[in-house]
Computed example of a mutant assay.
Amino acid sequence: MPSKPLPTLRTERITDENALPDRVRKGRGAVSNRLSGRFDAPDRYDTTDGWDSEDHPDIERVQTILGIDAVRKIISYNESPDVGSSRSINPYKGCEHGCIYCFARPTHAYLDLSPGLDFETRIFRKPDAPERLREELSHPKYRPAPLALGINTDAYQPIERTEGLTRRLLEVLWEFRHPVHIVTKSALILRDLDILAPMAAANLFSATLSVTTLDRHIARMMEPRAATPAKRIETIRALSAAGIRVSVLAAPLIPGLTCHELENILKAGAEAGAIRGGYIPVRLPNEIKLLFEDWLRLNFPDRAERVLNRIRALRGGKLNDPNFKTRMTGTGLEADLLKQRYELAVRRYGLDTPRTPLDSTQFRGGDPQMRLF
């Protein structure tokens, strides 16, 4: 079926895959393109995901398709009281990690694409992002504040290996002495230690590693192209050894599937050098609840109903609670018990270090000539 090209994207027609029946695809999280849209793209890209030596070599592999997203501004602003940062940069739309629970999946629907397989196989890069960032930071009216890099989709997802947009953005931020925080589940962040370590020494950078489970088998099904759990813990160790303040985030915790691992995740992070801990129960907004249920019933049919019911117990009888404050913690007895376990664990493992704000006073904006002094 032909489609009208999206206004900000360079496109060509490709073969439609939506008619394929629901089934597991190698290296992908979603099992379908439920609520799918249409997409056109200029080129294709394939990369290793670190799981090639695993079982099931006969499972179909779906290739990644890479497109271009032309942007005029790269910094996004928000007023959400529970996000932790008022501004962010996302060099990519869509994410190859393929995490079935990813809260960003519905954003692909705005591109007339599916939040399912399209979200993790049809990725848009923003090649002019570093130039746009330089323009915005140079504006006389710009006022610095810590920003989050890759808060919607992971800034260190697999295509960053060849695109290098995140590194180029970090180079600009370091040049301007602008504070930045990164949340990732990728070991690729270690590639940029030559920039991140000096930034951290100047109190301009901190990091958080998201760890959902320590079970390699569950991780492979749930987030097939993210780093293995062990690799993420080793990344915490390497960041800490480089003098970077790093936190471990047990998120999302899925009742009946991974929530029993909360203490073990926090302990592993603390032993690797993390100084703070956090947790977030799983959120299933909009189309995600349909995709997650498909995935759950296909991969864990024996416990699917129990998991869904326990999520509803956390979310006021529904699969999602969009309200600020409660959306990050849940409500009810299940949420209260999870909070108590978390508070005990962070005290036990020393992950309650007071938060130190990143420094915005070193910012070198305005006249580019002044940054030479």
Results as ranks from 00 to 15, higher is better:
265 I>T: 04
207 A>Q: 05
224 P>N: 01
143 R>H: 10
207 A>P: 04
209 L>M: 15
251 A>G: 01
240 S>K: 09
220 R>H: 07
215 D>N: 15
237 R>I: 00
266 L>Y: 02
134 R>C: 04
189 I>M: 09
256 G>R: 01
210 S>L: 05
265 I>L: 02
232 R>I: 00
139 H>S: 14
229 P>E: 08
215 D>H: 03
251 A>Y: 00
174 W>I: 05
247 S>I: 01
184 T>D: 12
260 H>Q: 08
199 M>N: 10
174 W>M: 12
217 H>K: 13
206 S>K: 11
157 Q>R: 11
184 T>H: 11
239 L>M: 09
204 L>Y: 11
181 H>P: 08
136 E>T: 09
247 S>D: 12
231 K>N: 08
247 S>Y: 00
240 S>F: 09
190 L>A: 12
169 L>I: 06
134 R>I: 00
221 M>T: 05
223 E>P: 06
137 L>E: 05
221 M>P: 01
197 A>Q: 12
195 I>L: 15
188 L>P: 10
174 W>A: 15
230 A>V: 03
180 V>G: 12
235 T>V: 03
201 A>T: 03
199 M>L: 07
210 S>W: 05
212 T>V: 07
132 R>H: 05
236 I>S: 02
262 L>F: 01
265 I>G: 02
226 A>W: 02
217 H>E: 15
204 L>T: 14
249 L>T: 01
181 H>E: 14
240 S>N: 10
